[in-house]
Amino acid sequence: MSEHIQLTETVPASCNGKRLDQALAELFPDYSRSRLKTWITEGYVSIDGNSVDKPREKVLTGMEVEVNAEIAEEQRFEAQPMPLDVVYEDDDILVINKPAGLVVHPGAGTPDGTLLNALLHHFPAIDQVPRAGIIHRLDKDTTGLMVVAKTIPAQTHLVAAMQERKITREYEAVCNGPMTAGGHIDEPIGRHPTKRTHMAVVAMGKPAVTHYRVAERFRNHTHLRLRLETGRTHQIRVHMAHLRHPLVGDLTYGGRPRPPQNASQELLDYLRGFRRQALHAARLSLHHPLTDEWLSWDAPTPKDFVKLVALLRADRAAHSNEQD
């Protein structure tokens, strides 16, 4: 099954002399630049009745541009009634506070029971939007805020905003080891050369930038606030491991328990039992894709993270009189 798309416009003076792909992006902003470019190269676009397949073709004022294309129906996933913590919703977007343990999208080993399945039940019409409107992901055991597009125009604008780094995502994390100051990490990330499911800092990886500052220091751990400038898979986890300060609980990237000396049994047990990366998407800020209003949301820190910080704080207080 597929959906037929037919679009017709006259080239305005503002597009005179522009490349065809640039003109189409202005004429049909509800569709992504990459999709429009694909339609051109596949021969679905005509100018004054003549088919063209070169995105760099120049257009002139008054020309008639027509798109006749097919959008293949995506794989159908099942709508499932699952609890969703909806922080904000309007006709165009949803903001979700994702709990730990929830996978965002079906994949190998997780065919259902994901955020995508829950979205299809919450708002059935979202099945008309690619990937059910999911434009960015959080790892299974990372908690916090995600924005979801409910319509194709909203998705197109949000994807562009993400690519242009106009969506602000701020995180809380607890890492192993004491850090003295904040900074930023500008290191490319790609697939690990030998571990297929891992990411790593690699010379030929994609650009990745993470900003961080120290929120609170403990004896052998640090509470951080971080801001993503890019959005690579496992970015914060990989960057912190690269600094040799892996996140507490992140066994994939070296975050095994590293309790301070003479820690209480309660802290020892809690660190050993903390089986997820201590990472929370705490704040999300963006321009609304249709109204352009600047919006910002905060998600409360989850209870397991709060207890971790409280125990580390108590440990610091209990040993405050010791000499370094």
Results as ranks from 00 to 15, higher is better:
H122D: 06
S51A: 14
C15G: 06
P29K: 15
T38Y: 09
D127I: 13
K98D: 05
L94F: 12
Q22W: 15
I71V: 14
Q128Y: 06
L102E: 04
I71Y: 04
E89W: 10
N50D: 09
P124S: 09
E74P: 05
Q22D: 13
Y88N: 02
V129K: 01
L27R: 00
V95R: 07
M63V: 12
I93D: 00
K18G: 07
G101I: 08
P12H: 05
E73K: 10
S32D: 09
V11T: 12
R131K: 05
L20F: 02
P153A: 12
N68T: 12
T61W: 11
G43P: 00
P99Y: 09
M63I: 08
R19F: 11
V148L: 11
Y31I: 07
K54Q: 13
L94Y: 13
D90E: 03
A108Y: 13
E70H: 05
F28H: 07
P106H: 14
D141V: 13
P111Q: 15
T41I: 12
L60A: 14
T143C: 12
I47S: 07
L27F: 03
A118E: 02
A13F: 09
P153T: 09
T61D: 07
I96C: 02
A25N: 07
V147H: 00
D92W: 12
H136R: 03
M146V: 10
G144P: 01
I47W: 06
E73W: 06
R131S: 05
A108T: 13
L60K: 11
N117H: 05
W39R: 00
I71E: 08
E70A: 14
S14M: 10
E78G: 03
E64M: 11
R131L: 06
P12Y: 05
